[in-house]
């Protein structure tokens, strides 16, 4: 049955016509314009293996992320990088998009948790890279190259992810403070041995999440002060899933990935700041060129995350030597340009 599904994928791929790989359609908004016939991954689903004592789970691409996460929760473990579900995201889609949630600055990104993948390349070959162990330096790190490639290098069939135990202690605190003070505080605290795992600044309020050993969380709460936040899970989930009020409506949503110490950027409206200052969201019709330039000048980059005018590209342009490497990598994994054309860059 699994083999039948793999053969179906192969048949479609070998037709050499553009395909748009789709799991839960939860991120159709993300990346360049959609093109090609839909290749639905959801029939290739299910958890292949889960070994709590190995801290590893392997699942097929079409597995709903929610299903994988409930299997982990049943054993008091979780995906610490918190990839968004945006409704019905699948494991394959999460890996292709490579997005991470509120804890990212403290625990690492989804890419950091990918241990291995099985993919189908543009010639219908099934290739396996990485594995199910934490340390593995045999061959180039193709598993992590696939993460965030938006499906342009191949169809991700199965993924092995590192998982972590759920922390015993958890608390969220609020502080009233302006943006510059909040950025300074976040960078100062991140340099101290505190169990600080997530942060959000918006409209003059800084919210932080402490998570770890109970004693450490209690000690940090005592030393930092602030006001305890009720319904904390709901709050952090609102950020992870972008269901918080800030993200509502049709105004273009820009994502700025910056050094955490970058000073407040001039922008039309107030940003929402996560990741200790390293991820900043903006709403509205910003001047794309100006915004991109400001992000690069600050040491990062800007992405038109949702909505807006995509004709100028969604992701920050690459330096020519790197674009050439991208083209060559694309050509080697997908010589006939089958997978998600234009989804990452208009050039391929």
């Amino acid at each position: 049955m699994e083999e039948d599904q793999i053969n179906l994928f192969r048949t479609r791929i070998l037709e050499r016509k553009p395909l748009r790989i789709r799991g839960g359609s939860s991120k159709d908004f993300y990346g360049g314009p959609l093109a090609g016939d839909i290749l639905d991954t959801r029939a290739h689903a299910g958890i292949v293996s889960y070994e709590p004592t190995e801290l590893v789970i392997t699942a097929r691409c079409g597995t709903p992320l929610a299903e994988l996460e409930s299997a982990l929760a049943a054993r008091r473990q979780f995906l610490a990088c918190e990839p968004p579900r945006f409704g019905g995201a699948t494991v394959g889609g999460a890996v292709a998009a490579g997005l991470s949630g509120p804890r990212r600055a403290a625990v690492g990104s989804l890419r950091d948790f990918v241990l291995g993948v099985r993919i189908m390349d543009g010639e219908g070959r099934v290739l396996k890279f990485g594995g199910e162990v934490m340390k593995n330096v045999a061959g180039f790190d193709v598993s992590r190259l696939m993460t965030g490639a938006l499906g342009t290098l191949g169809l991700v069939l199965d993924v092995s992810l590192k998982v972590l135990p759920l922390p015993a202690g958890d608390a969220s605190l609020r502080f009233e403070m302006p943006q510059d003070k909040a950025l300074a505080a976040l960078n100062r605290w991140a340099g101290q041995p505190l169990p600080l795992v997530a942060s959000c600044w918006q409209d003059g309020v800084l919210t932080i999440r402490l998570s770890g050993a109970q004693a450490a969380v209690a000690a940090a709460c005592a030393s930092l002060g602030g006001e305890a936040l009720a319904a904390a899970d709901e709050f952090w989930n609102g950020l992870r899933e972008q269901s918080a009020a800030f993200f509502a409506g049709d105004a273009p949503l820009w994502r700025l990935s910056l050094p955490s110490v970058a000073p407040p950027l001039e922008s039309p409206g107030d940003p929402l700041i996560e990741w200790g200052g390293a991820q900043r969201w903006l709403r509205g019709d910003a001047d794309a060129a100006q915004l991109r330039q400001a992000a690069v000048a600050a040491g990062g980059h800007a992405t038109l995350f949702r909505g807006g005018d995509k004709t100028g590209g969604v992701f920050a342009p690459l330096q020519p030597a790197l674009m050439e490497v991208h083209r060559r990598l694309k050509h080697s994994f997908d010589p006939y340009g089958v997978f998600n054309p234009g989804r990452l860059y208009p050039e391929f």
Binding site: G98, R104, A105, S109, R111, F140, D141, V142, R144, L145, T147, G148, A149, L153, S257, L258, P259, W275, A278, Q279, G299, G300, H301, T303, F315, A316, P317, L318, L322, V325, H326, L329, L344, Y345
Partner: peptide
Amino acid sequence: NQALDAPGYDLLALSI
């Protein structure tokens, strides 16, 4: 780059 991620393929992971 100096931020937590960069645009395009993860060539940082590939190079390490």
